Computed example of a mutant assay.
Amino acid sequence: MAKNKRILLSALVLFLGYFLVDSFFEFSFKSDEISSEDLKVMSYNARGFNVNGWSTDKKIGDEIIDFVLEENPDIICFQEFSRIRNKQLKHNYKYSFVAPDYKIKKAVQGIYSKFPIINTGVLSFANTGNNASFADIAYKNDTIRVYNLHLESLKVVPDMETISNEESSKLYGRITKSFKKQQDQAKIVQEHIKGNLYKTIVCGDFNNNQYSNVYRTIKGGLQDTFNEKGVAYGRTYNFKYYPVRIDFILVSSEFNVTGHKNYDIKLSDHFPVMASFNLRINK
């Protein structure tokens, strides 16, 4: 009985702090196909391409590359990137920005583009291994800014048995601390976006869902491509018992969203997402 109570309490703490949602089902009967005529952008937390051996499958890194090249996005934002994959991507993507610098001990991010990258930068998050970066990309006689975000992890193993075996007070304390860091990071991103004069695309692993203050802070007036053209739950994280959406593509109002796709390819603990959009024509 005591163990059952601990399991229920631990699970409740996690769900209230992280997975609590009201209705988040997109009542579309069919998602709009990704348009090959429009700008295609993908976001993918690739979990280091398995460089740290989280899986015994040694082919995962190559399979991720094969998947990306087959789907052929014009721009892809990797979170938890591995620099050893640069040569494989360079054949299809002439322009790239990998951050942070080699000397900085943070999770690596990669932005790869078929269009020229004319400026880059990093939004440094203090006291964390997480990070954010951006690239200004020349596209159709215009400039667009692409943000690549990887916000603070909650450091929760996505398994209910593991969660239930941890003391609820410790679990709650760790999640609360991570939430605070996430919110601080979201405000940094929000302020940076406000100072940006270009058309904006935000990709990334927010490590929080679409009903969080973190998401709302970053989203502001941006469009969520899943809300515009997605279907069903839009799961992006491999939590065994619950369809969680924590990876997003957000775009400014100058873009017309034409398609959104959630993939069910299990090569990481995250699932990739891709969206297509074109520039609105001013009448």
Rank of each mutant, 00 (worst) to 15 (best):
K40T: 06
G234Q: 04
D74T: 05
I137A: 09
Q210E: 14
I111Y: 07
D159N: 15
I118M: 07
D62P: 00
I175E: 00
Y139S: 11
N278A: 02
T225C: 15
D142A: 12
F25W: 01
E166S: 08
F24T: 15
R6N: 15
K180N: 05
S212L: 09
G17T: 05
R235F: 02
R145C: 05
V108W: 10
Y139I: 14
V157Q: 07
Q79S: 05
Y95E: 00
F67S: 02
Y215M: 08
K181S: 02
L171H: 07
Y112E: 02
I246Q: 01
N50V: 11
N50F: 01
Q210S: 14
K5A: 10
K181Q: 06
L8S: 10
G110I: 10
I249A: 03
E63V: 00
S36H: 12
I111M: 06
Y44T: 03
A46N: 04
Y263M: 01
F81S: 00
I111D: 04
D269T: 03
E161Q: 05
S36A: 10
E33L: 09
H192W: 04
Y263S: 06
A232E: 05
K283P: 15
F25L: 13
G17C: 11
S168M: 12
Y102K: 15
M1W: 10
Y139V: 11
G234D: 03
Q183A: 01
V146L: 14
V51H: 01
S153V: 02
E71N: 08
E166Y: 09
Q210V: 11
N208C: 08
I246G: 04
L12I: 13
F97V: 13
F78E: 00
E71F: 02
S168P: 09
K59W: 00
A275Y: 03
D66C: 00
K240Q: 13
I163N: 09
S28Y: 05
D101C: 14
F239P: 04
N45A: 08
T128C: 04
V13M: 06
K219I: 01
Y147N: 12
A126P: 14
K30P: 00
Y102M: 14
L123W: 04
N196E: 08
S169H: 07
P158K: 01
V21W: 04
I193L: 05
N127R: 15
D38E: 09
V202S: 00
G234S: 06
E71K: 14
F271M: 03
Y44A: 05
Y198F: 05
T258M: 09
F226K: 04
C77R: 09
V157F: 12
E26C: 07
G48T: 00
A135K: 08
K94D: 03
F277H: 11
N52W: 12
S28T: 14
V244T: 13
N207S: 10
Y241C: 13
T128I: 06
L8E: 13
P100E: 04
H270K: 06
K240V: 14
P272E: 11
D142C: 12
L12T: 15
G221C: 03
S113Y: 13
K3Q: 07
T217K: 10
K30W: 04
